[in-house]
Simulated scan of single mutants.
Amino acid sequence: MNAASQTSATVQSHTMEPLRWLRVEEAARTRGISRSLLYEFLRDGKIKSSLLRKKGNVRGIRLISAESLDAYIESHVLPWHPPTSEMASVTKSPDG
């Protein structure tokens, strides 16, 4: 895969906007999660997807909504809290 095709895999080259729909492998890879976790989110209705297939076919192409996946990930962001003085004294080395 050359550099031009790698860019078009994640960004629409003519508009430079992020893709709205991702294949399962790309969604998992670009968000740093496993395919099995992605399918778990789908099964539990936590993210949106679309299955494109021809009439009568069992198999098709599953596309993941990048917006719904990102929103779900964002909803689980935890705020960072600096260590308290109590915690800092526990983590100090005996020499420090």
Score class of each variant (00 low, 15 high):
residue 22 L to H: 13
residue 22 L to C: 02
residue 22 L to P: 04
residue 22 L to G: 09
residue 23 R to W: 08
residue 23 R to V: 10
residue 23 R to F: 11
residue 24 V to P: 03
residue 24 V to I: 11
residue 26 E to A: 06
residue 27 A to K: 05
residue 27 A to T: 01
residue 27 A to Q: 03
residue 28 A to R: 03
residue 28 A to S: 14
residue 28 A to V: 07
residue 29 R to G: 08
residue 31 R to P: 08
residue 31 R to M: 06
residue 31 R to S: 11
residue 32 G to E: 06
residue 32 G to L: 06
residue 33 I to V: 15
residue 34 S to P: 01
residue 34 S to I: 08
residue 34 S to R: 10
residue 34 S to F: 09
residue 35 R to L: 07
residue 36 S to H: 04
residue 37 L to M: 12
residue 39 Y to A: 06
residue 40 E to K: 14
residue 40 E to R: 11
residue 41 F to K: 09
residue 41 F to T: 02
residue 42 L to Q: 06
residue 42 L to A: 00
residue 42 L to T: 00
residue 43 R to C: 11
residue 43 R to I: 09
residue 43 R to P: 02
residue 44 D to H: 08
residue 44 D to G: 00
residue 45 G to L: 11
residue 45 G to Y: 13
residue 45 G to I: 05
residue 46 K to H: 15
residue 47 I to Y: 10
residue 48 K to L: 10
residue 50 S to W: 13
residue 51 L to I: 03
residue 51 L to N: 10
residue 53 R to F: 06
residue 53 R to Y: 07
residue 53 R to Q: 13
residue 53 R to E: 11
residue 53 R to K: 04
residue 53 R to V: 02
residue 54 K to E: 07
residue 54 K to L: 07
residue 56 G to H: 14
residue 56 G to C: 10
residue 57 N to R: 04
residue 57 N to S: 08
residue 58 V to M: 13
residue 58 V to N: 15
residue 59 R to V: 05
residue 59 R to E: 13
residue 60 G to A: 09
residue 61 I to A: 06
residue 61 I to L: 14
residue 62 R to S: 07
residue 62 R to A: 05
residue 62 R to F: 02
residue 63 L to S: 05
residue 64 I to V: 08
residue 65 S to K: 09
residue 66 A to V: 03
residue 66 A to Y: 01
residue 67 E to T: 03
residue 67 E to I: 08
residue 67 E to Q: 01
residue 67 E to H: 09
residue 67 E to N: 04
residue 67 E to V: 05
residue 68 S to N: 10
residue 69 L to M: 07
residue 69 L to F: 04
residue 69 L to I: 07
residue 70 D to R: 00
residue 70 D to H: 00
residue 72 Y to R: 09
residue 72 Y to V: 00
residue 72 Y to F: 15
residue 73 I to A: 12
residue 73 I to N: 06
residue 74 E to M: 11
residue 74 E to K: 14
residue 75 S to A: 14
residue 76 H to Y: 02
residue 76 H to M: 09
residue 76 H to K: 08
residue 76 H to Q: 10
residue 77 V to Q: 13
residue 78 L to E: 15
residue 78 L to R: 15
residue 78 L to A: 09
residue 78 L to P: 13
residue 78 L to Q: 15
residue 78 L to I: 15
residue 79 P to V: 02
residue 79 P to W: 02
residue 80 W to D: 04
residue 81 H to G: 00
residue 82 P to I: 03
residue 82 P to H: 15
residue 82 P to R: 10
residue 82 P to F: 13
residue 83 P to Y: 12
residue 84 T to P: 07
residue 84 T to H: 02
residue 87 M to K: 14
residue 87 M to D: 07
residue 87 M to H: 13
residue 87 M to G: 01
residue 88 A to L: 15
residue 89 S to H: 13
residue 89 S to N: 07
residue 89 S to W: 13
residue 90 V to P: 00
residue 90 V to K: 15
residue 91 T to A: 09
residue 91 T to N: 06
residue 91 T to L: 10
